[in-house]
Design a protein around this nucleic acid. Structure first.
Lengths: 146, 146
DNA sequence: CTACATGCAAAGAGTTTGCATCCGC
DNA sequence: GCGGATGCAAACTCTTTGCATGTAG
């Protein structure tokens, strides 16, 4: 969302990289995913536009865009990556283990947690994005009923 | 540590499973790892005792022991598993991105975080063990010096 | 025209699975 | 002896890499 503003070409040129159609398509695909997307989902989305784009290019480009701070990568509990557009309000995700619903929550609670750790132990947590798992409200209800 | 107390054979029998040398060796290996260990490390440790034990058996046994609540599995940021003995004081881990030092921190701060999320969003986080990354105090110092 | 970027295919790590054999109970 | 557990090898997924070719600047 709202990456239209990003002058990708100019930004890359500044840093000495080149603008290519693939990079634009991958960035667009991450945006359209609206939330998070796995490399595979992004690849599928890119293929709709240009079926010649290679998987490896998508992986390489995602890492590249991450280095450019245009997207962020998250390692899920199941060991898979998810990417999303960077620069939004800091927030985190919660995945329900029962229904797989994906909820967002603001950074406030996590920031407080990080701060308490810093005060108590001295280490600075540098994770801008975390994903927690558990039971969502709906599935908690269903569990009770059984 | 302190798994010697665990009556593995009896526990398995109660649940209708069998006691085998492999299961004992894997459990021992996780204990000896004293902290965390990857499946590969555990496999190597088991092999020292009995070189005939298969990788697949180690993987299967680790999952099995996790289902028995004897060990816990954690997905690291780099996408690899780590196992450790369950039943200790709940705690979490912090890995320094610079020096890879592995620090523990108590569950108190995390529990407070989880509680605040539950109150605010309704979902119940069920992760008994998390791993955070960032900079440890020492590496923070070194970064300043540069 | 000169690097950087891509496509292709192949490798690679980590993990899982099918199936015959083995062995705990 | 029965059925769960193991060994073996092969498959599987996700991701990375080497190299020739293509293309942006």
């Amino acid at each position: 969302m709202s990456h239209q503003n990003v002058d990708l070409a100019g930004l890359l040129h500044q840093k000495g990289y080149r603008m290519t159609a693939q990079r634009q398509m991958v960035l667009d695909a991450v945006c359209e995913a609206d939330g998070h997307a796995t490399p595979e989902e992004i690849w599928a989305r890119v293929q709709e536009k240009s079926s010649a784009v290679n998987r490896a290019t998508v992986y390489r480009t995602l890492k590249f865009l991450r280095d450019m701070d245009l997207v962020t990568a998250t390692m899920l509990e199941d060991g898979h990556f998810e990417y999303e557009i960077a620069g939004e309000q800091p927030h985190h995700h919660f995945v329900c283990r029962a229904c797989d619903v994906n909820l967002e929550f603001s950074d406030e609670a996590f920031a407080a947690f990080v701060k308490s750790l810093q005060q108590r132990y001295g280490f600075v947590v540098e994770m801008s994005h975390i994903t927690l798992t558990g039971l969502c409200p709906q599935c908690q209800e269903q569990t009770k009923q059984r």
